[in-house]
């Protein structure tokens, strides 16, 4: 399985998180997966201005050619995307959200009705399954975790897929690697 890890940790000094993802990558390699980790903090990514240029001026591409192109290309050629982030203020980081916002170009502006609710139409035939891995600080409760699960389930629904994995970095790394491998 081809796996893409979007590392949304903005702080290089958070070594525990970085080491966990390095170990996870190694474990998933050992299970015969092709894994690529993108450290979002190392990329030059602007925020989405909602100009809709990616729908009407350069369809499928953003009018601002930055490193988000690489993320989008990888995204549509992957079987599984693991969005990995420390939790800040009860939510995944702004860095990860900035990248997610820029994925809008891989959807159409057209509208589909899903259970009488409007959603964007797919631009590509297939989209990867999604997973969410969080570093949970002590002051986060189960309600916060549920909000994030709900959020990423909505994100997955919008991106024509489903949230198939949820994990915390407090879990054993081998266990997480096996769970993802079984998807």
């Amino acid at each position: 399985m081809k796996i893409l890890i979007l590392n949304g940790n903005p702080d290089p000094n958070n070594t525990l998180f970085e080491e966990y993802l390095a170990d996870l990558t190694e474990e998933m390699h050992a299970l015969d997966n092709e894994v690529r980790q993108i450290k979002l903090r190392d990329l030059n990514i602007r925020y989405c201005t909602g100009c809709w240029g990616c729908w009407v001026k350069t369809p499928g591409k953003c009018v601002f050619p930055d490193d988000s192109q690489e993320v989008c290309r990888e995204y549509v050629h992957t079987d599984f995307v693991l969005m990995a982030s420390p939790v800040k203020m009860g939510f995944t980081t702004a860095l990860l959200k900035k990248t997610q916002d820029r994925l809008i170009r891989i959807l159409h502006p057209y509208v589909d009705l899903v259970e009488n609710e409007c959603h964007h139409h797919r631009r590509y035939d297939e989209y990867p399954k999604n997973g969410l891995l969080l570093e949970r600080p002590q002051n986060i409760d189960d309600e916060d975790i549920q909000i994030m699960k709900d959020m990423y389930s909505r994100f997955s629904l919008n991106f024509k897929t489903e949230l198939t994995f949820f994990g915390l970095t407090a879990q054993d790394v081998k266990e997480v690697a096996r769970a993802i491998d079984n998807i």
């Binding site: 729908w55 369809p59 891989i106 509208v111 009705l113 409007c118 139409h121 590509y124």
Partner: peptide, 25 residues
């Protein structure tokens, strides 16, 4: 939804783009 599709297509066409493009295929 149908009208919306027509509208987007014509807006992209005006700019010389193909609204159904798949640049990362």
């Amino acid at each position: 939804a149908w009208m919306n599709k027509y509208d987007w297509k014509s807006r992209a066409k005006k700019n010389g783009g193909v609204v159904d493009a798949r640049p990362y295929s």
